[in-house]
Simulated assay, not measured.
Amino acid sequence: MQPIGIFDSGIGGLTVFRSIAEQLPGYDYIYLGDNSRAPYGNRSFNTIHQYTWECVQWLFKQGCPLIILACNTASAKALRNIQQLDMKGLDSSKRVLGVIRPTAEVIGNYSTTKEIGVLGTTGTVQSESYLMEIQKFFPELEVYQQACPLWVPLVESGEYEKPGSDYFIKEYLDEIMAKSANIDTLLLACTHYPLLMDKIKAHLPANVNVIAQGDIVAKSLVDYLQRHPELEQKLTKEGTRKFYTTTDDTSEFNHHASRFFSAPVTSEFVSVTEFGCK
């Protein structure tokens, strides 16, 4: 088996996995959620890099020649080092891709006013990765950022559906919208945030677009595989989907993951440190 690996610090990446599986249904997949160490958003650069690289190595050991970091924080703070440093000396055909670049390539197409807001974790915002990547493709865009450090814990804990979550959702939206009256597009730069979509829209003017990443990343992956047939031909296509989590409470993971994936999820526990990842 040579499946596509999907990694996230928790369960948010399942929103991206769902879109990928819809557009590329015949492929084999392995999903790994590092739930025991989530959330990554407020951790240091070195810690995020260490955790992400451990999980990437574990997915390589499961036979994945292609891994998608379905996590904005990991894409912002770990992907570059993994691609340019950690993978030196490994099989040169292996690939690790992130979610920031494919999003930055198209986000400007959604805005009429050319002013957008980026909502993300503290780590993603502080990295300024979106500012740098969007500038490459849409230098005319004015980009405002807002860290939303409480949103991932709300989602991971399942508290986001309760009325009390509205206060924290509205608080960050008010802050980003106060930065400019011309913002007409908000990017959910965290794969957890789509589960807050209905509540986010309820606190915004009707003319503001709210963009999730799932379909964007999935379309980008379809294009990537078409442009790299040597990699695409390696991937096995039996339609299998396996789910792993680093928390030993798999029942709790399964419960929340099924909502993100919009289908029943049955996972297995794994400890990535058992594989000697450094």
Score class of each variant (00 low, 15 high):
residue 104 A to D: 12
residue 104 A to W: 13
residue 104 A to Q: 11
residue 105 E to L: 13
residue 105 E to G: 10
residue 105 E to T: 15
residue 106 V to F: 10
residue 106 V to Q: 09
residue 106 V to L: 11
residue 108 G to E: 08
residue 111 S to K: 05
residue 111 S to N: 11
residue 112 T to A: 09
residue 115 E to Y: 01
residue 115 E to G: 04
residue 116 I to D: 01
residue 116 I to T: 06
residue 119 L to E: 00
residue 119 L to N: 02
residue 119 L to I: 14
residue 120 G to V: 04
residue 121 T to A: 03
residue 122 T to D: 10
residue 123 G to R: 00
residue 124 T to N: 04
residue 125 V to I: 15
residue 126 Q to V: 06
residue 127 S to V: 11
residue 129 S to N: 10
residue 129 S to G: 12
residue 129 S to Y: 10
residue 129 S to D: 09
residue 130 Y to M: 01
residue 131 L to E: 06
residue 132 M to L: 13
residue 132 M to K: 13
residue 133 E to Q: 12
residue 135 Q to S: 08
residue 135 Q to E: 11
residue 136 K to Q: 14
residue 137 F to V: 04
residue 137 F to D: 02
residue 138 F to Q: 00
residue 138 F to D: 00
residue 138 F to P: 00
residue 139 P to L: 07
residue 139 P to A: 10
residue 140 E to Y: 03
residue 140 E to V: 10
residue 141 L to S: 07
residue 141 L to P: 07
residue 143 V to G: 01
residue 143 V to Y: 01
residue 143 V to Q: 01
residue 144 Y to C: 03
residue 144 Y to M: 03
residue 144 Y to R: 02
residue 146 Q to C: 06
residue 146 Q to F: 05
residue 147 A to P: 02
residue 147 A to V: 02
residue 148 C to Y: 00
residue 149 P to K: 09
residue 149 P to S: 09
residue 151 W to A: 01
residue 151 W to M: 03
residue 152 V to Q: 08
residue 152 V to S: 11
residue 152 V to T: 14
residue 153 P to M: 08
residue 153 P to Q: 05
residue 154 L to R: 04
residue 156 E to Y: 04
residue 156 E to P: 14
residue 157 S to T: 15
residue 157 S to K: 14
residue 158 G to K: 08
residue 159 E to F: 15
residue 160 Y to G: 01
residue 160 Y to V: 03
residue 161 E to R: 06
residue 162 K to Y: 06
residue 162 K to C: 03
residue 163 P to F: 02
residue 163 P to R: 00
residue 164 G to W: 14
residue 164 G to S: 12
residue 165 S to H: 04
residue 165 S to Y: 04
residue 166 D to R: 11
residue 167 Y to R: 11
residue 167 Y to P: 00
residue 167 Y to S: 13
residue 168 F to W: 15
residue 169 I to T: 08
residue 169 I to P: 02
residue 170 K to H: 11
residue 170 K to F: 07
residue 171 E to N: 14
residue 172 Y to W: 12
residue 173 L to K: 10
residue 175 E to R: 09
residue 175 E to K: 09
residue 175 E to A: 08
residue 176 I to M: 05
residue 176 I to K: 05
residue 176 I to Y: 03
residue 177 M to L: 15
residue 177 M to Q: 10
residue 178 A to I: 10
residue 179 K to W: 00
residue 181 A to K: 13
residue 181 A to T: 12
residue 181 A to C: 09
residue 181 A to N: 10
residue 182 N to G: 14
residue 182 N to L: 15
residue 182 N to T: 15
residue 182 N to R: 15
residue 186 L to G: 03
residue 187 L to K: 05
residue 189 A to T: 03
residue 191 T to W: 01
residue 192 H to W: 10
residue 192 H to K: 09
residue 193 Y to I: 08
residue 193 Y to V: 09
residue 195 L to C: 07
residue 196 L to S: 05
residue 197 M to R: 07
residue 198 D to A: 14
residue 198 D to M: 10
residue 201 K to D: 03
residue 201 K to V: 12
residue 202 A to H: 12
residue 203 H to P: 01
residue 203 H to S: 13
residue 205 P to E: 13
residue 206 A to L: 15
residue 207 N to W: 04
residue 208 V to G: 02
residue 211 I to Q: 04
residue 214 G to H: 13
residue 215 D to N: 14
residue 215 D to T: 14
residue 216 I to Y: 12
residue 217 V to P: 03
